[in-house]
Write a protein that binds this DNA or RNA. Structure first.
Lengths: 208, 208
DNA sequence: GTCTATAACTAGATAGAC
DNA sequence: GTCTATCTAGTTATAGAC
């Protein structure tokens, strides 16, 4: 296994757990059992390492999401909102076969990216992977055409918040579900719980 | 104005904007125009300063929230979920009279507390202000008794995520609403948008 | 209470030997 | 490509003069 990948593997776990700001290069390199200088040799800077960590996931995820959402748009039938959100399940769970705990790690990273680092990651994702966002809004529009662009903007942002925040604390949630309710859930279980919630939220009556 | 308050005022704005980890004591003291050593003299440590910033808001907010939610529980009539969530509006907006931009700042701080600092603030709030949480779950239970304790746990967490995440990026959202949709919204407008969303989410059909 | 000075430590980044 | 050693700059925290 190459040094570069050892660094990426160690970095993504630490970043997901403690945030980008909260993780030092020293922690990463000692976890990866490589030399401190290797990060700067292979990636140039910490910021570039963060981008590389996110890109590795996005390059795996983006084509799957694009086609799953794209299909809903091409289809003649009008999809339900539940169907639109369910289109995320398979691509997201595919990340678990790509890496151990991949789904959970990726969603936690996404959450970190929105709150750490004052939005630079949001910029990175929306500019580097615009098709995912476009296909998603197109699918939601087809499912719920009465929703104006502005209302859609608000509700999709709320949805993003729900998902990202939930996933960034999914480890704690899974613990609580086990201890307080004697229920064993995994990341797929959390996703199944959250989809009816966000679908109902997006479908809420329109307010003015 | 006392040094202590100058520090608190500067700290809360910086903490809300850049997170607890992302803000140094030097930034705080130079913004507050006081000496660096004053923080440790008045608060003992950075962690205690964070607690003091949050306590100043919570001590203002908690009694209002407790009584607004408590009333719903005492009332004979069964409240709707919209009513339960609307009980937050007045107490939260009251923070705007207590401090400039108080509502927005407080909710941003809350968001930071959940993601920065690995949950120490969550522990602090749930242990220091348990009545707020108890009254809230009691009110939701009264409005929607079919929801089991476990489902309530999930949905309240999703709600918390939606609110907190939305508010921690509310400045960006308000900008986008103005630029892309030519709509002027303030923090009260954001709250009014989000309430139907979370109420519908909590009221979603039960899944098993 | 407030200040200067500084201790004690950690951060990201790099030069240069191998 | 990988290592050690080190640089520069930042951090929190404190001792001690005023």
């Amino acid at each position: 296994m190459s040094t570069k990948n050892k660094i990426l593997d160690a970095a993504e776990v630490l970043f997901a757990d403690k945030g980008f700001n909260g993780t030092s290069l020293r922690e990463i390199t000692s976890q990866a059992e490589v030399n401190l200088a290797a990060v700067n040799y292979h990636f140039g800077s910490k910021k570039e390492l963060i981008k590389a960590v996110m890109s590795r996931y996005m390059n795996e995820l983006a084509p799957l999401l694009e086609s799953a959402l794209g299909e809903l748009c091409i289809d003649e039938a009008k999809p339900s909102l539940i169907e639109v959100f369910s289109a995320f399940i398979e691509p997201l769970l595919h990340l678990n076969t790509f890496k151990n705990n991949g789904t959970s790690t990726f969603l936690q990273l996404l959450g970190r990216g929105y709150t750490d680092s004052q939005g630079f990651l949001r910029w990175f994702l929306t500019t580097q992977y615009p098709n995912v966002f476009d296909n998603f809004t197109a699918a939601v529009h087809k499912a719920y055409p009465e929703l104006s662009a502005e209302e859609m903007f608000w509700r999709l942002h709320f949805t993003m918040g729900t998902i990202v925040f939930t996933m960034s604390s999914s480890d704690a949630l899974i613990d609580i579900a086990l201890n307080d309710f004697d229920r064993e859930v995994d990341i797929a279980g959390v996703i199944k719980q959250v989809i009816p919630y966000v679908a109902a939220g997006v479908a809420a009556p329109i307010v003015r």
